[in-house]
């Protein structure tokens, strides 16, 4: 008989109309994920022995690390570890090959970002683990930190002069100092740069000064 199949189909949809919805309301109600779900790759920094097994086995070059050798114990110490997640294909090789089991996937899948740079995750050696390093590196690091703090202090005290010297232009220095007066973060970054890489610091400061001169020509003059 023609049409019985159609009626049957309509009946099925009608039945489903009055059944309970199975939707999970995502932002409020998180999905229940299986234990072996691979979300975001995580590293336990302390356990890593910088053996580079993971970086060698990774087919896409997602992982990279920096390490220093401790001559006394003849062991490597991890300095920083970066996971460029945008190339990862979740093959789990790194996790399987890690001898210390310090890599693992967690269940976080909310990784959306506005910029590609923000996808990359970099683990710096935490402050409390710095003492663990070989002596000369610790000493160098301490010296560096001291120089940076001195520089920050100097910058806070007399920014126009130092910046003017850096830029080889006193006017510009004044403008930049005025612009950075309210921005402690940037000031500190410039200080770190001045200690570590003076050329880069010059470039960045120059760009910032130009921008400041363009944005607030009047304010700079008032301060001057």
């Amino acid at each position: 008989m023609y049409g019985t199949g159609l009626l049957k189909g309509l009946g099925i949809t009608l039945k489903h109309t009055f059944e309970r919805e199975i939707t999970q309301q995502y932002p409020e109600q998180m999905p229940v994920l299986p234990a072996r779900f691979r979300g975001n790759l995580q590293l336990d920094f302390q356990d890593c022995i910088a053996c580079e097994m993971c970086t060698k086995v990774c087919p896409n070059g997602v992982l990279s690390l920096e390490s220093v050798r401790d001559d006394k114990t003849n062991k490597k110490k991890l300095m920083s570890y970066s996971i460029d997640f945008q190339y990862c294909m979740y093959c789990n090789f790194c996790v399987e090959n890690c001898p210390k089991h310090c890599l693992h996937f967690d269940h976080n899948f909310e990784l959306a970002a506005y910029d590609r740079e923000n996808i990359k995750k970099v683990y710096q050696r935490p402050q409390e683990l710095v003492t663990d390093l070989p002596e000369e590196i610790v000493a160098a690091e301490e010296k560096n930190q001291k120089r940076i703090s001195v520089m920050i202090g100097a910058l806070q005290k007399d920014a126009p002069k130092i910046l003017g010297k850096l830029l080889e232009d006193e006017e510009k220095g004044k403008v930049l100092a005025a612009a950075l007066a309210s921005d402690q973060d940037k000031l500190e970054k410039i200080a770190v740069m001045m200690v570590e890489d003076i050329e880069k610091a010059k470039k960045v400061a120059g760009a910032l000064a130009n921008k400041a001169a363009k944005d607030h020509p009047k304010e700079g003059n008032v301060v001057a």
Partner: peptide
């Protein structure tokens, strides 16, 4: 809404 309910969605 109806199409959602038919497919057991919200």
């Amino acid at each position: 809404k109806v199409s959602g309910f038919i497919q057991q969605r919200l």
